[in-house]
Structures are given as C-alpha cells and as structure tokens.
C-alpha cells in the first residue's frame, strides 16, 4: 500500500506536527488547548513509530504506540480532573490566572 514513499517524508511530517504541537504549548494560554497540543505531539510520535515499524517490518513499533495511547489516556484523565478542580476553585482555566505561584 505504501510502496514508493520515502521514510524521510514521514520523518518530516511527524517532525512538523511535533513542532506545531510544541509551539502550541509554548504560545497558547488556554490550558485545555495546551493540553491538546501535547496530545498532538504524542500523535506525531505515534505516526513516526508506525512509519518506522513499517520500515523495519517490525511490530514492536506499533505495540509501543499502544503504550503511548494508554499513557496519553491516563494523562488526560488526570489532567482534566485537575483542570476541573481548578475550575471549581477559580472558575477559569487560563494559565494566566494560574500565576499564584510567582515566577
């Protein structure tokens, strides 16, 4: 199915996605969106792993992706729980308002 595409394109693609995610984390203020950008980063990694797995004809790359998914789910659960707790306390989730700890 994938004949004729260089692995470099996949490297490039996931790098770009990864960087977009990273920029999002750095540039956005809204906690939820920051969180989503992290998910984007993880997905870039997943894509890369699957591409390499196809390249090496090796299933372990794909299996690794499962673990990443599990971890991502766990992280999101915890993160959103914390977010909703913060929301309960301050009625906002802007990282701006989260500056009670001085920098």
């Amino acid at each position: 199915m994938i004949n004729g595409i260089s692995i470099n394109y996949y490297l490039l693609l996931s790098t770009v996605l990864f960087i977009i995610g990273a920029i999002g984390v750095m540039a956005r203020r809204n906690s939820i969106i920051i969180f989503m950008c992290i998910e984007l980063m993880l997905n870039a990694v997943n894509l890369l792993l699957v591409a390499f797995s196809t390249l090496h004809h090796d299933a372990s790359g794909q299996v690794f992706v499962f673990f990443i998914m599990a971890v991502a789910a766990a992280e999101v659960a915890v993160g959103l729980a914390i977010l909703s707790m913060i929301y309960r306390n301050v009625k906002s989730i802007d990282t701006n308002l989260l500056s009670n700890l001085k920098n």
């Binding site: 984390v25 993880l42 990694v45 890369l48 792993l49 390499f52 690794f64 992280e75």
Partner: peptide, 23 residues
C-alpha cells in the same frame, strides 16, 4: 497542573527521541 503539563511535554520529547532511535 504545571507539573502535569511540563511532565507530558517532556514525555513528548522523550518519545520523539525514542522513536528516532527506534527508527
């Protein structure tokens, strides 16, 4: 929350590194 965000951010880097090395 900060810890979580930074931790996950770092995990992202770790994973990307692992992926590249695996590659």
């Amino acid at each position: 929350f900060k810890y979580l965000i930074m931790g996950s951010f770092a995990s992202g880097f770790l994973l990307f590194g692992i992926a590249l090395i695996y590659g």
